[in-house]
Design a binder for these strands. Sequence first.
DNA 1: TAAACTGATACCATATTAGTATCAGTTTGT
DNA 2: ACAAACTGATACTAATATGGTATCAGTTTA
Lengths: 134, 134
Amino acid sequence: MKLINKDTDYAMQAIIYMAESKEGVVSVSEMSEKLEIPKHFLRKILQILHKKKVLKAYEGRNGGFSLAIPADKILLLDLIKIFQGPINLIECIFKKKICPDIRHCILKKKIDYLQGVISSELKSLSMASLSYRR
Amino acid sequence: MKLINKDTDYAMQAIIYMAESKEGVVSVSEMSEKLEIPKHFLRKILQILHKKKVLKAYEGRNGGFSLAIPADKILLLDLIKIFQGPINLIECIFKKKICPDIRHCILKKKIDYLQGVISSELKSLSMASLSYRR
DNA sequence: TAAACTGATACCATATTAGTATCAGTTTGT
DNA sequence: ACAAACTGATACTAATATGGTATCAGTTTA
Ligand code: FES
Ligand code: FES
């Protein structure tokens, strides 16, 4: 069971890198090198973050990306949602069969509860709080 | 993110079925039919549960499986461990790079906490508690 | 003695995740 | 002017995990 996949992982690293960088704009080449992340793969990820308005993009020579939102407003939960979809731990394992009434299924209750805890923890983690130069 | 995969799902259903059954021994054929689970697939799952001492197996005609442990002692966490490995939500995303000190990484702290909550919830859910004929 | 079962294990199909490649367009230093 | 250095968009491939089949061997019992 994996909570964080490569896309989210690399996205976090890149965002933190940009937050720590003095230059406003950072290119994929630079980040790919410094963070040791495959260039094309990272590029794809940052393009998505741009579409989602998390990053600003600058085309042309000396171009690159910069944060569109301050790092303390970019939450781990946001990134996970972007790259891995909404947190949904169960899609009713026992359909009609065993659970006679979805409203009283204790499995569902527990898992709903877990989902809440996970969401709120991931929501409380901003990219700024992960930067060690904070 | 999936908490419970098909193996665990089918294992739960089969165990609950056996717990509810009056006959001591239930065959894969019967369960496969009643629970609408592919026969060979279910068989493989039950063979694993047998190896793990959760079930007793009876060979030969009229053979099948029965619970080796009472249903209230078979926990969801046990099944997840058997079929999906131990709960391990993170394998240090940022290796040496960003986390200068693993002991102070707040990401790790939060995820460790989540892992604890998840484990304890899954531990508190026995197969008996999911049977509606309890 | 064959039908109905499990043991063991190899195999296949599909989906998801991770990573690569490429063409088109933009900007800028020289 | 123009090539180098960049992003936009999108298609493709590779690796891995998951879900599911198939089969041969051995056991038990009607
Ligand atoms: S598992 Fe979905 S309602 Fe019980
Ligand atoms: S992510 Fe593993 S220690 Fe910070």
